[in-house]
Structure formats: C-alpha cells, structure tokens
Design a protein around this nucleic acid. Structure first.
Length: 325
DNA sequence: AATCAGGACTACC
DNA sequence: GGTAGTCCTGATT
C-alpha cells in the first residue's frame, strides 16, 4: 500500500496538492527539511499527512458526508495544479482513476479526476493510520488511549516528522485528556510544534470518526490482509522482539529498506539499517533510548533459547530464525 | 567505528 | 521466573 504517494525509485513529487493549512508555521516545519527527498515516512511507509496534504478541521467539516474529502477550491489551488501535476504527485492514480470520456470538458474532467484523487488520498490516509495503529499497537481512536499509548503516539509523531522531543511535555495525559485540550493548550506545552501535534491528533480523531461510520473493509488492501494477527489486538499486548522482526520482514514493501530476507526458506535475514530497526523497536516498546546495541543484545538472548542464531556463515547484521516460517 | 558476544544487573509482567 | 533493557568489557570485522 501507499505506493500512491511516491514511486519505489523514490522520485519525489516536487510540489504538494495545495490544500489549506491553518498554521503557516506548522506547514513550514514540515517543509523545513528543505530537500524533501521523499514523502515516505521513516518506516518506508508514506507519511499519513504530508507537507501539502494537510486537512484542516474546518475543511473537513465542510462536507459532513465525507469529512475527509479535501477541499481543493479553485481559489486555493495554484495555477499549476493541473490534473497532470496531480497525477505526477500520485503516480499510481492512473490505475485507480477511470478513463474519462472525451466529451467531458477539460475543466469538468479535471474536477472529476481530482475528486477521485482526493478520495484515493483519503483512503490512503486511513490505511496509513491503520498501519500506524498496528505498528504501535494502539487503538485508532485517541479517546481510547492510555497515557502509555499517548506517549507512543507522541514518540511516533516525533520520529515521523523529526520533531524535537515533546513527550515530556505531555506526560501523564490519557487520550481523553489530550482530546479535551485546545490548540492553545498544545502550544503552551510545546511552542515549537504544539500546533502541529494538535493538527495531527485532529486528523486521527477525524479518521476514527470516519471509520466508525465506514468500517475499514473497503480500504483494506491485499497487503493489509497479510499483516500478522498478532499485532492487531487492541489493547496492547506484549510483543517479542523476534515477532516484531518477523512482522517487519512480512512487509517487504514497507520495510525492505531496513530489514529484508536473505533466504526466506532458511529464515535468514539481514538488518540493512540497524539504527532504523532499533528506532522502530523503541517506538513499539515505548523505549526512546533503544539502539542497535541493546536490540542486538536481545537478539543474542535468543541464541540460548533456540529462536534466532547466526547463520553458518556468519555475516554482520545477518541472523537466522531457527524455525523459519 | 560498528558490530558481535556474553556477563551482570535491573525492571516489569 | 521469563523477558527485555541497560551497561559493561573485550574481541572481531
């Protein structure tokens, strides 16, 4: 999933859809990484809200039937926001969008297709949130979050957008507490990115509300169905490191940049980006200080237990499941 | 420098 | 008690 945002070669949409953003600063914060190489998140997943794909609460409320339908009002759109550009931004959109008939006039055609792109974007956002829920093992509805879940979400969001550490500013807050806070409350706790966190939380809340009305079924992709059940159980269940590693390995489309099979039949895998995998594990376990040194120590504990070992020909960052799938 | 191996201790469930 | 996190020393790549 998620390939709609960016092709696998990492080519970058050079501009975002120009959707309204209520907070100029937050928008800038997203753009701060001037060389926005890829809209993908650190997991290799597409990020679920991108610099230009911000949905303001107001905009979402414009259309109660489809609160996620992004308003791309003609006055808000830049002159260069054409269908062609939109499709460049979402390369896979071609395969999702019906071929228009020649009779349709240019303007209508563009509106029609943009609407389809928007609907697709909404679907992608929902899927991305669902993916994040599974990775973090948290409920999709922020109202259901415990303090630990809130910290996980914060850590995740920090990680995703390379924000300064804000977890400490939101300690001992449950999801309900978080949801009852105003944007100003968020800013008071974090001047730098409070508004961004507020906006991000708002997106999750809206998505959750939408899911209640329209269960995920329709948005479910083939990839989602292969996701191991063990990580989909809310509330949080402890997960073992070896399970987590398998989980990443089972999603090569998203994680092959950081971990991949060398020989799946034999259970041999390689950690391509040790720091990245460690960060993901740290987020999953709510351990901000996790690093590869510690992660690898845990892997080595599996040697005695016969869960993971080094392959016969030992190589750096290469391990082997004793009982491959 | 990064990775690997493993001991020792601690915290949490 | 099991599991994992943390810190450590020393070896290897």
């Amino acid at each position: 999933m998620g390939s709609t945002w960016c092709d696998q070669t990492g080519s970058t949409p050079q501009f975002p859809l120009n959707l309204t953003h209520p907070h100029g600063d937050a928008k800038r914060a997203w753009h701060d990484d001037a060389d926005v190489k890829s809209p993908r998140g650190p997991l290799g997943l597409p990020e679920f809200s991108r610099p230009g794909v911000y949905l303001s609460c107001r905009d979402r409320l414009v259309n109660q039937d489809n609160p996620w339908l992004v308003r791309v009002a003609s006055e808000a759109a830049p002159p260069n926001l054409t269908l062609t550009k939109a499709l460049e931004t979402f390369p896979d959109a071609h395969s999702h969008i019906q071929e228009p008939t020649l009779e349709v006039e240019g303007e209508q055609l563009e509106e029609c297709c943009l609407e389809q792109v928007q609907t697709m974007v909404v679907g992608e956002v929902l899927k991305d949130i669902d993916m994040a829920c599974k990775l973090l093992n948290i409920a999709p509805d922020p109202l259901d979050w415990s303090c630990v879940h809130v910290q996980k979400w914060l850590l995740w969001t920090e990680h995703l957008y390379k924000l300064p550490q804000v977890c400490k500013m939101f300690q001992e807050l449950s999801g309900k507490d978080l949801c009852s806070m105003t944007e100003e409350d968020f800013r008071q706790r974090s001047l730098q990115c409070g508004d961004m966190l507020y906006a991000h939380l708002d997106i999750w809340r809206s998505a959750s509300g939408m899911k209640e009305r329209c269960p995920l079924g329709e948005n479910k992709s083939v990839a989602d169905e292969s996701w191991p059940n063990m990580v989909s159980n809310y509330p949080s269940q402890p997960i073992h490191l070896w399970q987590f590693l398998k989980e990443l390995l089972l999603k090569p489309n998203n994680y092959s940049r950081c971990i991949r099979w060398i020989n799946k039949e034999k259970g041999i895998f390689k950690i391509e980006d040790s720091a990245h995998v460690a960060r993901l594990w740290g987020i999953r376990k709510n351990r901000p200080a996790m690093n590869y040194d510690k992660l690898s120590r845990s892997i080595r504990q599996y040697y005695k237990k016969g869960i993971i070992r080094k392959p016969d020909v030992s190589r750096r960052l290469v391990y082997q499941f004793v009982n491959p799938v």
